[in-house]
Computed example of a mutant assay.
Amino acid sequence: MKYLNKKLSWSLLLVIAIFQTADAAIVDTVQTYSPSMKKNIKAVVITPDNYANATALPVVYLLHGYSGNYADWITKAKGFEKNADLYQMIIVCPDGNNSWYWDSPVDEKYKYETYVSDELVKWIDGKYKTIKDRKGRAITGLSMGGHGGLLLAFRHQDVFGAAGSMSGGVDIRPFPNNWDMAARLGKYAEHPENWEKNTVANMLYLLTPNSLSLIIDCGTEDFFFKVNENLHEQLQLRNIPHDFIARPGGHNWPYWTNAINYQLLFMNTYFKTPLKK
């Protein structure tokens, strides 16, 4: 009987292993094109294993941080791509080129707001089986990409129905000398209007209750924690529903590798929730 139990245990483990490896998300690197910047831009596109049999799938646009690139998520948060199978969604990771996802008012070579919110969305919708509606689109990211995810969703609520941020630079004004932002907006002392207009913290007037499904996550040891906490409080004052997650952690990949699972669960819940009539 002891031997039989051992055989059954190994058989069960084998079945579990086969089940776990049967679905494997498909990861592709593609060349997209930006008409506004007249150049090709790489992106990682993750589709579920059974994509060939799908009809129309929701899409999450997942943005990287400063000094990163389109491949960051797939190389530094290994295993997160399984969420494409788990939730039957497409995940798109575009290259942001340290742009902070703005259309720069001082450098015409940087039009990444136009690229992500318009050109890339149209490119993906033209090449993949997607739900071509805001109810089937969400956007999130880390650090610079957390700022970008909220900024693009706030400004383009006709495109995205849900948005998130992980350790996002949601108020850029306390950091006037950091991360090439002055190269994209001009120096804060010389062009304060560019900074005031292009920080997420000053865009809450664009929101009405439930106009977007929102999730904001930041570690309590993160240098961006205070600006995220302030954003949470301002959203509360305006009665804007949102999820806010604050837990121990810093500005690093171990935190984001964990956080992305909460973000994609949130996005999946949004995709599955019927529209209120």
Rank of each mutant, 00 (worst) to 15 (best):
Y3H: 05
K7F: 08
L8C: 06
W10Y: 14
S11A: 15
T29E: 13
V30M: 00
T32F: 04
T32E: 06
K38Y: 06
K38C: 07
I41Y: 11
A43M: 03
V44C: 09
I46A: 07
I46P: 03
N50E: 06
N53M: 02
T55G: 13
L57C: 06
L63E: 00
L63A: 08
L63T: 08
G65I: 00
S67V: 06
S67C: 08
N69R: 12
N69Y: 15
Y70N: 10
E81F: 13
E81H: 09
A84V: 04
L86K: 15
I90Q: 13
I91N: 07
I91Q: 07
C93P: 04
N98L: 11
S99Y: 09
W100E: 04
W100H: 13
S104W: 14
P105W: 08
K109A: 13
S117L: 09
D118M: 14
L120R: 08
V121I: 12
D125H: 03
G126A: 13
Y128I: 01
R134L: 09
R134N: 13
K135Y: 15
G136P: 10
R137Y: 02
I139P: 05
L142A: 11
G145E: 01
G146F: 11
G148W: 09
G148C: 07
L151T: 11
H156W: 10
V159T: 14
A162R: 10
A162D: 05
A163E: 01
G164N: 14
S167F: 06
G169A: 15
V170N: 13
R173H: 03
P176N: 12
N178V: 01
W179G: 01
M181T: 07
A183L: 12
R184P: 10
L185G: 01
K187D: 09
N194G: 03
W195F: 04
K197R: 15
K197T: 09
A201V: 00
M203F: 01
Y205W: 10
N210F: 03
S211D: 05
L212M: 06
S213P: 02
C218D: 00
E221Q: 15
D222C: 08
F223R: 01
F225L: 02
F225G: 03
L231G: 05
L231F: 05
L231R: 05
E233N: 15
L235W: 02
P241R: 06
P241T: 07
P241S: 04
D243T: 15
D243N: 13
F244A: 05
A246P: 04
A246H: 13
G249V: 11
G249F: 03
H251D: 07
P254Y: 12
P254E: 02
Y255F: 15
T257K: 12
N258G: 00
N268E: 05
Y270S: 07
T273L: 14
K277P: 11
